[in-house]
Design a protein around this nucleic acid. Structure first.
Length: 594
DNA sequence: AGTATTGACT
């Protein structure tokens, strides 16, 4: 053995102790103890210990990972000559899913003349994909992978597709290019690309690619099905979801717990919560996500009592609820008007379960009071919160002020919100709503001008309708389908029939959305009405009509849809941004409470 | 030592 100062020679026991700590290191405390060992006993020259340390730090979140990075990779404090590719790879791996930039590590590797190997680039791309705007880094690293001759490796390509695909419009083109160049594509390659489409809000492209996959030679696996299911949730594509459920049922893919959870969630979110519960009942194994998905599914369908029952059944089985479970449970209570039950569960969170309420839980409680018209209680609750209220909380309260006509309070809170969050266009729309309700049209026009001036816009209403495997999209105020004569004629017919049946257009909410010039026509042009007209034209009598909307249904459309359901003898199910409406015989299952 | 992945306040 060569020269080695005594205090730096690692003792066998110290090494064992350190490795042992790091092996099961899921606490910050153990990590710190291991760190002490590393520094005291000369283990910093032990690559294995360093690697374990980086890996353990990774599982402890961004803070720990950056401590590890600082300790191990700052040139002044580290024994650089002990580094190898394996160690830096591990450190790279430890970065994601934290948004820590991997380039300092990667360039250190190159500076030390260590060669990247086939593991380096997958880790590198994965870390890049977790960054806030990863496109420039992805193309730089892509160039590097090409230079080092790893661009043809399938692991590299799969992570590269993923990294490009999460960067939005420009990246998705590059992702597709890499995808098309991938010669021996596997189910994983398809999953990466399909998942990329879904993350970029292109769920329709995701489904198109899945269809291409089905006529090809590559068999989808459970993960592929899961990514397609998230596209289904996005589009509310119930038929495809049911088909995928059947596909899994026939044993075509591995029926993993994850996949079953995704199916339960998708079935509920696409409108068939009973199918979701059937599947849930049949699952051989369930975890907290399975239970939460069912509770959340019931919440969306306004079945609050059942959601509470499922929650109680879960506790009877000895499963401990987590923070997300409580969000779903409290949502269920607020959407079903279960004020006392909701308040009790909220109190029990800290007392019985030791879960500190987060802003989302407070949000549920504000919603619970707000929906029920208890504006004062809601306001008091907000003032007594231990966390600073966020814009979501304020908007919940504002919606309540609008519905229950607390115009002065609403206006005041909205102005405060705009001060806090001046660049969010919808806040100005909220304010203009209060001006309109007060008939202060000049003020309302002023808001409009301010918005135009600052280049702000409101989100356009958009409805989706699935017909024969195709998802049709309808946008408020016109667009391609509206120009079809048949739809136009149908809209006229619907308008006249429901008026004759007693429908009173209450434009008070309508004109908030659309400029005055469009007022007269506005009735006819909300996207859910266009979709309904299209559906009535293209489906056989008696068929249930299912529509998915990106915003909340307005009072006027809600009322119109009730009349349509009665006159045309159709059940119409509309998925809101947050819940389901089911119109049947002139009534809605939400009992006008939403 | 790797690639794609399930539940969440308006």
């Amino acid at each position: 053995m060569g020269y080695c100062p005594a205090q730096q020679r690692p003792s066998r026991a110290a090494e064992q102790r350190c490795l042992c700590l790091l092996q099961s290191s899921c606490t910050v405390l153990k990590l710190l103890q291991a760190l002490a060992f590393l520094l005291k006993s000369g283990l910093r020259s032990n690559v294995l210990a360093l690697t374990r340390f980086a890996s353990a730090a990774a599982s402890l979140g961004p803070a720990a990972a950056s401590v590890a990075a600082t300790l191990l990779f700052s040139p002044s404090s580290s024994p650089l000559h002990f580094y190898d590719t394996f160690l830096i790879n591990t450190a790279l791996r430890s970065l994601s899913p934290n948004p820590l930039h991997p380039f300092p590590l990667f360039s250190l590797m190159l500076r030390l003349f260590l060669s990247p190997n086939q593991f380096t680039f997958p880790f590198l791309f994965k870390a890049i994909a977790a960054l806030p705007s990863p496109l420039p880094a992805t193309s730089l690293a892509h160039g590097s992978a090409l230079r080092f001759g790893f661009a043809g490796d399938s692991f590299v390509q799969n992570t590269l597709i993923h990294a490009y695909a999460v960067t939005g419009d420009a990246g998705i083109v590059m992702a597709r290019k890499v995808f098309d160049e991938t010669l021996r594509s596997s189910a994983i390659t398809f999953s990466a690309m399909i998942g990329g489409y879904v993350r970029s809000g292109r769920s329709r492209d995701a489904i198109v690619l899945f269809r291409e996959m089905q006529v090809g030679t590559v068999q989808p696996d459970d993960v592929t099905i899961m990514t397609v299911l998230s596209a289904c949730v996005d589009l509310g594509a119930l038929n495809l979801t049911k088909w995928l459920n059947f596909y899994v049922e026939r044993g075509k893919v591995h029926k993993s717990l994850c996949l079953c959870n995704a199916l339960v969630d998708a079935l509920a979110k696409c409108g068939d919560v009973d199918a979701a519960m059937d599947l849930f009942d049949k699952m051989p194994e369930r975890n907290i996500i399975s239970w939460t998905s069912v509770i959340d599914g019931l919440a969306m369908h306004c079945r609050g009592i059942e959601a509470v029952e499922v929650f109680e059944a879960m506790m009877t089985e000895g499963i401990k609820p987590d923070a997300v479970t409580f969000i779903s449970l409290l949502t269920a209570c607020s959407h079903s008007g279960l004020i006392n039950i909701g308040s009790r569960y909220f109190d029990s969170m800290t007392r019985e379960f030791g879960i500190e309420p987060r802003i989302e839980h407070y949000g549920c409680m504000v919603d619970l009071y707000s929906r029920a018209g208890l504006v004062e209680e809601a306001m008091k609750f907000v003032q007594g919160m231990h966390i600073k209220p966020n814009p979501v909380i304020w908007r919940t309260l504002i919606a309540s002020c609008r519905v229950y006509r607390r115009l002065d309070l609403g206006e005041r809170v909205t102005k405060q919100l705009i001060k806090e969050e001046p660049s969010y266009g919808s806040n100005y729309v909220l304010l203009s709503n209060f001006y309109a309700l007060n008939n202060r049209w000049e003020k309302k026009r002023e808001i409009r001008r301010v918005m135009d001036c600052r280049g702000m816009y409101k989100v356009a209403g958009c409805s989706l309708f699935e017909l024969e495997g195709e998802v049709y999209e309808f946008i408020a105020g016109g667009e391609k389908y509206a120009r079809q004569l048949s739809i136009y004629v149908m809209m006229e017919e619907i308008g006249q029939k429901i008026k004759k049946a007693g429908f009173l257009p209450s434009s008070s909410e309508m004109l908030l959305d659309i400029d005055e010039e469009d007022k007269e026509d506005a009735m006819h042009w909300h996207s859910e009405k266009l979709a309904t007209a299209f559906a009535l034209l293209n489906t056989t009598p008696g068929t249930v009509i299912r529509i998915v909307k990106n915003l909340r249904v307005c009072v006027d459309c809600h009322s119109a849809l009730k009349f349509i359901s009665k006159i045309y003898k159709r059940d119409i199910i509309v998925r809101d941004r947050s819940r389901f409406h089911r119109f049947k015989d002139g009534a809605c299952l939400c009992k006008d409470f939403w």
